[in-house]
């Protein structure tokens, strides 16, 4: 699949039933847009707002018959919006010929401004945006454009992996990449890939790429790459390959593992759930996880100590036990006398 062709498009989203407040915002935004453009084709307006032609036509009909109750409370023609109905019905062209009450874009709400500002803060982590003055001025504009102080949500600028800039360069330029990679199984090797898309999840960065070694599209953790080289060789076309939207996909060779999880920790396993079945057992939730192999499982479970316990199969339990025992062996010198020693905590953090 050609990354340059598909990557530019917004991922297809499941159609979401629009709620009345969303429709209201759309109407309030459409009016000033139509006034600003003066004459605009339905399909152009639809493309601008990312909606169907029909949604624009419906909205225009609603606007054209809306207005003010007026002095008599009877919505007289002079108190209503009006459009050029001939151009609208014959040529699919919108022209507002009379407007009332609104002519400008509405302000953002505190929550809306905060969501965009926090998103921008996160983007500051990207190499090309580092120390960007334009991002700061953009955030200031959003604050000025909000009707109340934006909700106090902050996102710390994460230190992006140094290789991220080079990976981005390879994606943008359509160049092959070579790097050493050690996968979760612990197997290391040199990989040659066609980079397709850079993806992140919170503080973790991934590259989705066609791997020439494995002859398939794979996800690579950027922090597991080393000795990265951007090659001069252009990437191949992969028209038949679909770059998955999500990072975690099941395959037939996957391992199903039954675990008990503390209710509060269930969201942390959302990426690994094999199905939506949840049963309650002794105050824990019993769910089935699907993972590529036990090597991923043992790391996952050990990283959620006390929150997740493997129930079955036995070999998965054994793998986790073995992993933890091996880790514990590294501390054997300390003896068991410190077992009751409570860790001191500096504060509520």
């Amino acid at each position: 699949m050609n990354a340059n062709r598909r990557g530019g498009q917004r991922p297809p989203k499941a159609p979401r039933a629009q709620k009345a407040p969303d429709k209201l915002v759309f109407l309030l935004a459409l009016v000033p847009y139509l006034l600003e453009r003066q004459v605009v084709d339905v399909d152009e307006a639809a493309a601008h707002f990312g909606v169907s032609d029909e949604a624009i036509r419906d909205a225009v009909k609603l606007i054209a018959t809306s207005g003010l109750p007026g002095a008599t409370g009877t919505y007289q023609p002079n108190d209503l919006f009006d459009i050029d109905w001939d151009s609208f019905e014959d040529d699919d062209v919108i022209v507002i010929v009379h407007h009332v009450a609104i002519d400008d874009a509405p302000r953002l709400s505190a929550r809306e401004a905060a969501a965009l500002i926090a998103g921008l803060k996160y983007l500051t982590a990207l190499p090309e945006n580092a120390n960007s003055a334009s991002l700061a001025s953009l955030m200031a504009k959003l604050t000025a454009g909000a009707s109340a102080t934006p909700t106090r949500i902050g996102v710390a600028e994460t230190e992006a992996d140094a290789s991220l800039a080079r990976i981005r360069e390879a994606v943008a330029g359509g160049r092959q990449l070579e790097f050493d990679y050690r996968n979760a199984l612990g197997i290391a090797g040199r990989r040659r890939v066609d980079p397709l898309r850079v993806l992140s999840q919170d503080a973790d960065w991934y590259l989705q790429a066609y791997c020439h070694t494995r002859e398939d599209v794979r996800n690579f953790r950027v922090d597991r790459m080393s000795a990265l080289v951007v090659s001069e060789v252009p990437i191949d076309e992969h028209p038949d390959r679909v770059v998955p939207e999500t990072l975690f996909q099941g395959s037939d060779s996957d391992l199903d593992v039954v675990v008990d999880v503390a209710p509060a920790a269930l969201p942390l396993l959302a990426d690994y759930l094999a199905d939506s079945t949840v049963t309650e057992v002794d105050g824990h939730l019993r769910v089935t996880l699907r993972l590529a192999h036990v090597h991923g499982l043992k790391r996952l479970v050990a990283g959620l100590p006390g929150l997740v316990t493997v129930v079955a199969p036995p070999e998965a339990r054994a793998a986790v036990a073995g992993w933890a025992e091996a880790g514990l062996a590294g501390y054997a010198d300390a003896g068991s006398s410190v077992r009751d020693h409570e860790p001191t905590d500096p504060g509520d953090r």
């Binding site: 990354a3 340059n4 990557g7 530019g8 498009q9 917004r10 991922p11 969303d22 915002v25 759309f26 309030l28 935004a29 459409l30 009016v31 000033p32 847009y33 600003e36 453009r37 601008h48 707002f49 400008d104 874009a105 509405p106 302000r107 953002l108 809306e112 996160y122 983007l123 982590a125 990207l126 981005r168 994606v171 943008a172 980079p195 397709l196 898309r197 850079v198 993806l199 992140s200």
Partner: peptide
């Protein structure tokens, strides 16, 4: 949606990037 009221067309979106 509110900002689209201003009638400004964004430049082509960033390619191959999904933070």
């Amino acid at each position: 949606t509110k900002l689209r009221a201003l009638g400004i067309e964004p430049r082509e979106p960033v390619i191959g990037y999904a933070p």
